[in-house]
Design a protein around this nucleic acid. Structure first.
Lengths: 152, 152
DNA sequence: CAAGCTATGTCAGAATGCTGACATGAGTCA
DNA sequence: TGACTCATGTCAGCATTCTGACATAGCTTG
């Protein structure tokens, strides 16, 4: 129904396409993570922590694109369930460096395999050169949006 | 702080970059739409309706990447505030075709200008060719994620 | 024609994320 | 040293979106 007025302007908007691609990626990730009882933000937090041990709550929030308040409730849950640990006292300042527990690492391993399969599917049909080009173009868009006026 | 372990693997993940770009775009749109008292979903709904008059609630939901339940509450608010109209009875089936009111059209006009400026900023520094390439690559990613195995 | 399937609109409750606010620790500067 | 600014962790309340559920309309199929 209503397929009459197809292809107007949304079809030519990179912004719309970006949202569409991002939405598809998120949906695909949710699909493979659900059997593992894990959400996308949940996974993102663990992955970030695996690659950069000792990140603080605020840093994790920035890395996963949520507020530090949202990350805080997630971290408390992850800590309560034994996936991450944080010292009772801050070694410096107020920032509490978080680290994965062995349990968190095990849980992440399975999730990483699942998510990697999604990323591979997304890249299917793209040559190495095209992937590099996509990488470069996405970087350019992000940079231009972040207050930057000139892009490389 | 913790800038030590920079550039691990997240920096090479197209999925992460896609989320980063999408997040930056959304933030930029929120920033320019806030002075107009409009949210991103709000705007997306109006824009979609302007380009394809008569779309139903479910169709609008798919076009804006939210559930039809979420779109329903938004549509009811927009209808209550006089931005869109829907017939009391469905002309066919259960789908209620929605249309912009003059007020909705006026409201959209200002928003469109604001959003276009964001999109232009995002495309700054990209040549026509690069934009076409970004377009093609995003399409490929989305298509591959939607169950498709082969990409053009 | 009847049964089944799909899509739609809608209501209600739950989950998730965000804004506002406050106190604290560290660096800056006069 | 003291005032100022900034970043952080955290609590509370609010907003938005999602999941679950139900009734209905139209199409399909035997």
């Amino acid at each position: 129904m209503s397929q009459k007025g197809a292809g107007v302007d949304l079809e030519t908007s990179l912004g719309y396409l970006l949202k569409e691609a991002s939405s598809a990626l998120r949906a695909a990730m949710e699909e493979v993570l659900r059997p593992l009882g894990m959400t996308v933000t949940h996974y993102s937090c663990l992955e970030l922590l695996a690659q950069r041990p000792g990140l603080s709550n605020s840093e994790l929030a920035r890395g996963t694109f949520v507020t530090r308040q949202s990350m805080n409730v997630l971290l408390q849950a992850l800590e309560r369930d034994g996936y991450v640990t944080r010292p009772a006292e801050a070694p410096v300042g107020k920032a509490l460096p978080a680290r994965l527990t062995p349990r968190g690492r095990r849980s992440l391993e399975k999730a990483t395999v699942a998510v990697r399969s999604v990323e591979l599917r997304m890249l299917a049909g793209m040559t190495e050169t095209e992937q590099s080009e996509a990488f470069r173009l996405l970087k350019s868009m992000t940079h231009s949006l972040h207050g930057g006026n000139d892009a490389t």
